[in-house]
Design a protein around this nucleic acid. Structure first.
Lengths: 120, 120
DNA sequence: TGCAATACTTACCAACTGGTAAGCATGGAA
DNA sequence: TTCCATGCTTACCAGTTGGTAAGTATTGCA
């Protein structure tokens, strides 16, 4: 079930960056974690619409790709905390201009925005 | 067959930008066109591995989203030229930091590069 | 008459992606 | 003994994505 980490071959940098970020919820997870450490349940509640299966799968892949750190506390009930690694923060920074372009696109075409508790 | 232009609702800017750029060959097409106007056949030869079906489908969608301009010359055999619009050039510029991050990732993980005639 | 060149168009199909819903493990509280 | 909370795990299924391969239209050339 757990796929291997994404490796090439790649055609160019975009290709290599997209590979790590594509997946319906990945960039949103990165965005959420930019706000700081989050527990699994907090992420789930912060991303309305995500299924547990996809949230875990994407978190695992982001972890394999070195973007997210997973810390398990052996308690009952279990507690697991997710946070960005340095690499993850760098990726988020590199995504900023694209995000800005996207925000202008939303205005240009007058697209609706999904209601979200905390994401911008 | 021709899908409607991509519209929201979107969660954030990243979401709105990704929507326009996701598709196996889209960012590569944009990259190729950054080098200037290209005929359909030139694009096909410049992106080894792309099928005619997908190349046309992606070009049509990029055109619908205002990123690519399509110019038809009524000759025989037919000639069709594709080029970037201002919006397309802006998107490419916004993709640059991501491309740079991806290039570093390729080095970091020692990924292979696909052989391509002209793409970097 | 038939083939070449170019830019598509279409039908069909396999693989991938993501959703639903149920189950698992643990220990403490009721 | 049953239920709760949490963080998963699994099986199954439908929709989307992209590939292959064949067909279309037009004119010039052999």
């Amino acid at each position: 079930m757990s796929s291997p980490p994404r490796s090439g071959p790649y055609i160019c940098g975009i290709d290599a960056a997209m590979d790590v970020v594509s997946g319906k919820w990945k960039s949103l997870i990165l965005w959420e974690l930019d706000g700081g450490t989050r527990r699994f349940g907090e992420l789930r509640r912060g991303l309305p619409g995500v299924s547990e299966k996809m949230l875990i799968q994407h978190l695992r892949e982001l972890e394999q790709d070195g973007l997210v750190h997973r810390e398990v506390y052996r308690e009952v009930p279990p507690r697991v905390e997710y946070s960005l690694t340095g690499l993850g923060r760098e990726l988020n920074a590199a995504l900023e201009p694209l995000a800005e372009w996207g925000r202008r696109r939303i205005e240009r075409i007058g697209a609706e925005r999904v209601e979200l508790s905390q994401a911008g």
